[in-house]
Design a protein around this nucleic acid. Structure first.
Lengths: 187, 187
DNA sequence: GCCAGCATGTAAGGAGTTACATGATTAT
DNA sequence: ATAATCATGTAACTCCTTACATGCTGGC
């Protein structure tokens, strides 16, 4: 056995988020986690609560209930010493999970022989627009990070993520141009 | 209701692979699918067989059993008309699943404040080496594609995938340099 | 009047993985 | 000798998603 040497990666995401802030509710973490989609996919709302339960069970965070009026009681979580130690252990571990891409656009391009030129051009054009939108969203996050002390590393990750998006936009645009200049031949 | 407008993406991967070849066994598809990890994560062996069952149930492929000696009987699958139609429908669909990244290195970098310089530098150095290895593997696939008729689109996807890897290697190397030149300050 | 934001939680299920079972042949 | 290749399949499980339930407050 001993299949996994620790927690699922989503747990580390939530734990890491907690290490960047002070006390946070599940709701706040979920909002934060949304911005992580540029680096690592962001979990569903229900999953965030499940991860917080798990972290609490394992004694990596402390929880404190705050009564609310007209809403469910708020639970505030804080990373503790064990939690920080576990995060550090994960960071320094020899093993890092392989990078996984689920790039549907690339997959569709791969099977481009099944469609026509127009379909492919539309797919790529829409994708370029989407990437530009995402770059705008990421830029907002980056702006926040630049002025916030303690966010040097997230800022580096954001820069990296931005460059990913740039590569994608450029490559898609390049293919659009290539496809339009060779209406019959795609190679 | 109407949660999903079709098959899971893995089904399309397998169906698409079938559309590039003639008759294939689950075993062969699985080998092919391994090379897809540069564009879209490649499913586990057991999953490939499950997808083939699903495609067969839905009448998108035909199956033919070939008796083998000393091995389980081989089943050869072939995409049929309905399968091709379904693939085309998927390609031309207005909706394309969002691109998902599970970049553990980027995630660890994001939480870099928890580790020391050395840990981070080691992480990035190892990652650069790994990416270079992957580029070598992808190059082998690309070489095959260039001389194979009907593989123009897979070759384009491979080029795109290669550029992804290049971006990652460059970005990682750049960060290694930046971290070493500013031993205390990372921003 | 309606939608967004705040705030958590449960039930049902899909998608995918790991580990195992079986066993002949060929290459190192 | 032993590992890899060929070849499929099942059981048990994890991770994560979708959909639903609840209900107040504040903005348009």
């Amino acid at each position: 056995m001993a299949k996994k040497r620790g927690l699922p990666t989503t747990s580390y995401t939530v734990l890491g988020l907690l290490s960047l802030g002070d006390e946070m509710s599940g709701y706040e973490i979920r909002k934060w986690a949304r911005n992580m989609r540029f680096f690592y996919w962001s979990p569903a709302q229900s999953q965030v609560y499940l991860e917080l339960d798990r972290l609490h069970e394992r004694g990596l965070v402390t929880a404190r209930e705050v009564p609310q009026e007209g809403k469910p009681d708020k639970k505030l979580y804080r990373i503790n010493h064990e939690g920080r130690a576990e995060l550090q252990r994960w960071l320094a571990a020899g093993h890092t999970d392989p990078v996984v891409m689920k790039h549907s656009v690339l997959l569709k391009l791969y099977f481009g022989h099944m469609g026509d030129h127009e379909t492919l051009t539309r797919l790529l054009t829409e994708y370029v627009a989407e990437v530009r939108t995402q770059q705008g969203e990421l830029a907002v996050v980056q702006e926040f990070m630049e002025n916030e002390p303690g966010f040097e590393y997230p800022a580096l990750a954001a820069e990296w993520g931005y460059r990913h998006l740039e590569t994608d936009a450029q490559m898609a645009q390049e293919l659009i141009d290539r496809l339009s200049s060779s209406p019959g031949e795609e190679a």
